[in-house]
Amino acid sequence: MLHLLIVSYTGSEEDAAPFVRDHVEYLERHHADGVFLVSGQTVPSSQGGAIVACGVDREAIERISAEDPFVVNGVATHAITTIEPGRVHAALAAPLTAAAASRD
């Protein structure tokens, strides 16, 4: 199962600035544990960012999302779209399978 998290600032980028360090640590922790596959800022960055997550169910990703320091401090929200992949590019099949297996 994949999850697309759209991170949207509730105010300005400057409002989020005091929490960037903690947000980056949050991202790094979940990249290290294999849940976050991709994360980055939107273009333009003033809109927020996005995260692609894998290997956890909807309940778990909602819990992880709620722990984002941006969300905790009210400077951003996450919109979560859960995807059950039907077709996967060959270049992504092995990493997605490995990410899902590491969470089992």
Rank of each mutant, 00 (worst) to 15 (best):
L5R: 15
I6E: 08
S8V: 01
T10W: 02
T10E: 10
G11N: 11
E13V: 05
A16T: 10
A17D: 11
P18M: 12
V20I: 14
V20N: 06
R21C: 00
E25I: 07
Y26L: 15
E28L: 10
E28Y: 02
E28W: 08
A32M: 12
D33Q: 05
D33K: 11
G34S: 03
L37A: 11
Q41V: 01
Q41L: 06
T42G: 06
T42K: 14
P44W: 10
S45T: 04
S46W: 11
Q47V: 12
A50Y: 15
C54S: 13
C54M: 14
D57H: 11
A60S: 13
I61M: 10
E62Q: 09
R63A: 12
A66R: 09
A66F: 01
E67K: 07
E67W: 00
V71F: 02
V72L: 07
N73L: 07
N73D: 04
V75W: 06
V75H: 04
A76C: 06
H78E: 13
H78K: 05
I80V: 15
T81M: 06
T81Y: 11
R87H: 15
V88F: 05
H89R: 12
A90C: 03
L92P: 04
A94G: 10
A94E: 15
L96I: 15
A98N: 15
R103W: 07
D104M: 09
